[in-house]
């Protein structure tokens, strides 16, 4: 069953000299599937996440495409109906919970207003559910009485994650949930999310610049570059072979614990200016496998054994591989 289905989504910033931030993105998230969306900052991944939740704010606007969540069209739905679907169908956890909680309301009140908005539960039932989600996240129940400024940064983020599960959402969008938190808290949150899978039935779209994190938590990975999906792959296959040169570079850059201890690398170069419609492969200027063809045309997404790739060069490897397989078979 498909929980989220995005088709040919286009998001621009501004109208006069628009930035084409999200370019023709299609993706699907299945029931109870954890999908990761990785890319460097500015690649459009957060813009895409916000657009999916229909939280895009001026100057960002959706220029075209469709977003279907749980069988309902979120693009054409009237505002009032959209509002009633929010948090029930899609809950969102923002980059660092520092500021995501209202400073002048207790945690309990912030849990309660969302429950009152979407359910007809009694106050006692609401309190019970509030305590349940805190229990699931291993947060002390008396935290409900606290104001945000009384909690640490990591605690606030865990509270926000607990809040996301109040209404048993179909999809949880996590936008850089652990950035700006220290390693110990990061680990707690990751373990918590894994554990939550046993209590609740939900899908995740995890947006992160940290491929390591995504590989650890997600079943499938989408790699985004310059506003486009350049590779789609299952985590298991990706660990064996990445198809897009950019993904390969990202994999190389992963910190590894090896003979030389921790090694960090990066992908040299900078992404293209998205003020213009590109007439070439967006990654070409930084690509080691670049061919003349890459500089005159943009590649389409083509199938790989375990997903899709947007590359002229490596898609031929797929074909060669297939032939190789079929000859062997």
């Amino acid at each position: 069953m498909t929980v989220l289905s995005v088709d040919h989504l286009e998001v621009n910033y501004g109208t006069k000299a628009p930035v084409f931030a999200v370019r023709n993105v299609s993706l699907e998230v299945q029931h109870q599937e954890f999908v990761g969306l990785v890319g460097e900052s500015g690649c459009g991944k957060s813009t895409l996440g916000f657009a999916i939740a229909r939280l895009e704010r001026p100057p960002a606007y959706i220029r075209g495409g469709s977003i279907v969540i749980n069988g309902e069209d979120w693009m054409t739905m009237p505002d009032e109906e959209l509002r009633r679907h929010r948090w029930r169908d899609v809950a969102i956890v923002l980059q660092s919970g520092m500021n995501a909680l209202n400073p002048v309301m207790t945690i309990e009140a912030q849990f309660r207003d969302v429950m009152m908005q979407h359910t007809s539960l009694s106050r006692a039932q609401i309190l019970q559910r509030s305590m349940d989600v805190l229990d699931m996240a291993h947060i002390a129940r008396n935290t409900l009485k606290r104001y945000p400024h009384e909690l640490s940064g990591g605690m606030k983020q865990r509270v926000v994650i607990a809040m996301a599960f109040l209404l048993h959402p179909k999809l949880v969008i996590l936008d850089e949930p652990t950035t700006a938190l220290d390693m110990v808290v990061q680990r707690q949150i990751m373990d918590n999310l894994t554990e939550l899978r046993q209590h609740e039935q939900f899908s995740v779209l995890l947006i992160s610049h940290d491929l390591g994190l995504v590989l650890e938590l997600c079943d499938r990975v989408l790699v985004m570059y310059a506003g486009q999906i350049v590779e789609e792959n299952t985590t298991d296959s990706l660990l064996e072979q990445a198809w897009h040169p950019y993904t390969r570079a990202l994999m190389q850059a992963l910190p590894r614990i090896g003979g030389n201890g921790l090694q960090f690398g990066g992908v040299p170069g900078t992404p293209p200016d998205l003020h213009h419609r590109l007439q070439h492969c967006a990654f070409a200027p930084r690509c080691g496998l670049v061919t003349p063809e890459c500089q005159v045309r943009e590649p389409e997404l083509t199938d790989t054994p375990s997903g899709k790739v947007r590359c002229f060069v490596t898609s031929r490897e797929v074909v060669a591989d297939d032939k190789h397989h079929s000859i062997r078979g």
């Binding site: 939740a53 939280l55 704010r57 509002r83 009633r84 679907h85 929010r86 948090w87 029930r88 899609v90 809950a91 969102i92 923002l94 520092m98 500021n99 995501a100 909680l101 209202n102 400073p103 002048v104 309301m105 207003d113 969302v114 908005q117 979407h118 926000v160």
Partner: peptide, 29 residues
């Protein structure tokens, strides 16, 4: 422009509630 107002919107709260309890209450301080 604060995150908590964005999150309130994501929570599907009514505009009037967001404007008063989330935005105005903090802005009046």
């Amino acid at each position: 422009g604060e995150d908590y107002v964005l999150l309130a919107q994501a929570k599907g709260l009514k505009s009037r509630w967001i404007a008063t309890m989330y935005a105005a209450h903090n802005a009046i301080l």
